[in-house]
């Protein structure tokens, strides 16, 4: 299975993502933001980082870069596109997933392990996972998900919430919400569920001795789902 990780100026999780994808069997290719065309691929990943120094709004400049037109066309034709952290911010700025990511509620850069609950497994990313609650890592300043009430209703009606912040038992209460996100939303799909944006970093949880291995479960499962 082939994957492509896009590197923007200021991306800093692109290499980690490459290591993770390669570890679990993807044939990964790094793609420069200024290229016009994506290579032939089964999955596109927009990695975390601080593209364009987070100027104007996080992800806003990157969402207009040359490669994004090709990424948008790939997503519109049903291709799998996943945005992690800054990649999620780029997805909302490009309109591929609904809503926006605001400054964290308490104005802190948050860097810690959290738990998320997978709500909906009827999609290519989480299908066949036999676990609901995952321990992952977050590191962001703008992860406070927001959208209008009408949009929220539409998102819920279409089962577009991918993951919620929760505790280790899967309780999705406000006190387990690290950044003020609307309804504890940590990740979201587009309507068709081929585009996934999420703040937590699965690529940071792929090594038992360094972190945990909940990210490994995610990548292994994703590969099997795409095969």
């Amino acid at each position: 299975m082939k994957s492509a990780v896009i590197t923007f100026p200021g991306s800093n999780c692109d290499r980690d993502m490459h290591v993770a994808l390669t570890k679990f069997g993807f044939k990964n290719q790094m793609v420069w933001h200024n290229d016009n065309e994506l290579p032939k691929t089964d999955l596109v990943v927009l990695p975390g980082g601080f593209s364009y120094g987070d100027y104007l709004r996080c992800g806003s400049m990157a969402s207009k870069s040359k490669i994004m037109q090709s990424v948008i066309n790939f997503a519109k034709s049903g291709g799998l596109v996943m945005g992690i952290c800054n990649g999620f911010q780029i997805l909302v700025e490009s309109g591929l997933v609904p809503g926006v990511l605001l400054r964290n509620k308490y104005l802190e850069f948050i860097c810690k392990n959290i738990f998320v609950k997978i709500d909906n497994k009827d999609n290519p990313y989480f299908k066949n996972l036999d676990k609901e609650v995952f321990e992952l890592h977050i590191a962001h300043n703008e992860g406070n998900y927001f959208c209008s009430n009408d949009q929220l209703k539409e998102i819920q009606d279409n089962n577009q919430v991918a993951i919620y912040y929760c505790n280790d038992n899967g309780k999705t209460e406000e006190k387990f919400n690290p950044n003020g996100s609307l309804n504890n939303i940590a990740g979201i799909f587009n309507k068709e569920k081929n585009v996934l944006g999420m703040m937590p970093h699965p690529e940071r949880m792929i090594d038992k001795s360094l972190s945990g291995e909940d990210g490994s479960l995610f990548f292994k499962n994703l590969l099997n789902n795409i095969k």
């Binding site: 104007l56 806003s60 207009k64 909302v92 809503g99 926006v100 605001l102 927001f146 209008s148």
Partner: peptide, 9 residues
């Protein structure tokens, strides 16, 4: 419309 403002917010 296209860059400077995000009309969602």
């Amino acid at each position: 419309n296209k860059l400077l403002a995000n009309l969602v917010i």
